[in-house]
Design a protein around this nucleic acid. Sequence first.
DNA 1: GCTGCTGTCAACCGTTCGGTTAAATATTGG
DNA 2: CCAATATTTAACCGAACGGTTGACAGCAGC
Lengths: 115, 115
Amino acid sequence: MQTDPLSAKFAALADPTRRAILARLCEGEASVNDLAAPFDMSLPAVSKHLKVLEKAGLISRGREAQWRPARLEPMGMKGIAEWLEHYRRYWDASFDRLDAYLKKIQKGDPRGPGH
Amino acid sequence: MQTDPLSAKFAALADPTRRAILARLCEGEASVNDLAAPFDMSLPAVSKHLKVLEKAGLISRGREAQWRPARLEPMGMKGIAEWLEHYRRYWDASFDRLDAYLKKIQKGDPRGPGH
DNA sequence: GCTGCTGTCAACCGTTCGGTTAAATATTGG
DNA sequence: CCAATATTTAACCGAACGGTTGACAGCAGC
């Protein structure tokens, strides 16, 4: 696992199973068994996925009797959204004409995000 | 490498070196040597990173003499942005109160919104 | 207590990842 | 053609990933 938070978040999202888990958690808290049900996968595997998501700050976990319910961490994806925002002008249609204009007048350097 | 495009994009972004390469490409096209300069890393390593980014659809490459300049693929991150948009309500401040309300009814609070 | 259910831990396994070095492949210019 | 420059390919390596199975721990109810 990477050390920097952004890499951890991207890595956590780079797995369809983990994205499906997040989608399921949009409907509310769920136990490990609930989350594992749709997958042809052992319980420890799902448990590991949850640990990856938790370390990435995308979910948090509670304790209720013998259950460890998982829930979405609301601010978890904010870092990704902010990083992505720097690149919005490259795909957003409303910036297409500006982009073309910038390319035309300066072959050299439209200053982009310096990250 | 995963087969589905979204996983490939997320995986490509889950590496600081590759994100730095993308940031550099915001300033314009660059050759492999240019891109490799800031890193304490061999040229083949950078070449591999470029291949990952290209397969993810985040950059494209041309040919000019013996150079293979890389450039940003403008629409490359649109898929990510669209996926992320589904979760916007979980972090966006303008939805904070809705979020709180949803958490309330998730926990089975018998009182409705009017009480 | 014991039983059953829930979840994690530990060890293992095959594959992929991120890097290296050395050799091969363009492509241009003299 | 030859030499120089730029880049990729091939083979290899250690570490991390995604999964398994089996043993173990926490908690409720009889």
